[in-house]
Amino acid sequence: MEKIIHMVVFGALFVAILLQVTTAQTVHVVGEDTAWIIPLNGPTAYESWASDRTFKVGDTLVFNFNALNHGVQEVSRASFEGCNMDNAIGEALMTSPANFTLTPGEHYYICTDIKHCEAGQRLAITVAGTDTPEASDPTSSTAIDTIPQPSSSTIMFASFLLTLSSIALATFL
């Protein structure tokens, strides 16, 4: 009877680990190694960076920057196009890293230094909702491309739990 209880506990841990890995959201570090700076190749830099990614509800957008020179503000499309903060959404984030948890729809981010925005330090993304055809239609050719990949921290956590459960199983059996 004791062995059955231990196997049930181990099975529950295993299922929890699998659920954690499969529901993991993606962390997108804006600009990757170059971070959130005035881009060398102008306004297309962040546009190019975003075009290689699929943004999903619950993903995290991370802006790394030098807080002495930069900040990040989410704004409306009109403010994005005009490089101003007239229609700011929420508070400006002046501490790095600045994290945004993504919700469905279009999102626009600019540097809090307007001259930096005018030089191309701005980002526009579209976040796919959970009810978009790409996410819900299994026959769609892009459905496989939109599956979020687990972040390295999620993989490390899952590995830790798997190791811990293996030790527990070895101890109890």
Score class of each variant (00 low, 15 high):
M1Q: 15
I5M: 05
G11S: 15
F14S: 07
L18D: 00
T22I: 12
T23A: 08
T23Y: 09
Q25C: 10
Q25M: 04
T26N: 15
H28V: 14
V29M: 02
V29D: 01
V30N: 12
D33T: 08
T34I: 05
A35Q: 07
W36M: 12
I38G: 02
N41V: 09
A45Q: 11
S48F: 01
W49L: 06
W49K: 03
D52N: 13
T54Q: 10
F55Q: 07
V57Y: 04
G58P: 04
L61P: 01
F63E: 00
N64S: 13
A67E: 15
N69G: 11
H70F: 12
H70I: 10
H70W: 06
V75I: 10
S76T: 14
S76P: 12
R77H: 06
S79I: 12
E81N: 11
G82F: 08
N84P: 01
G90K: 13
E91S: 12
L93K: 12
T95F: 03
P97F: 11
A98K: 11
T101K: 13
P104I: 07
G105P: 05
G105Y: 05
E106R: 08
Y108I: 00
Y109F: 14
Y109L: 00
C111M: 05
C111Y: 09
D113H: 01
I114K: 09
K115Q: 15
C117T: 05
G120F: 15
Q121N: 08
A124Y: 08
I125L: 13
I125C: 14
T126S: 06
T126P: 00
V127N: 15
A128K: 01
T130L: 06
T130R: 01
D131P: 01
T132Y: 10
T132P: 10
T132W: 09
P133I: 07
S136D: 08
S136V: 10
D137F: 02
D137E: 13
D137L: 05
P138G: 13
S140D: 15
T142R: 10
P148V: 09
Q149G: 04
P150H: 14
S152Q: 00
S153E: 14
T154Y: 00
T154V: 02
I155K: 11
M156G: 06
L161Q: 09
L161P: 01
L162R: 01
L162N: 04
I167C: 02
A170L: 14
A170T: 09
L173H: 11
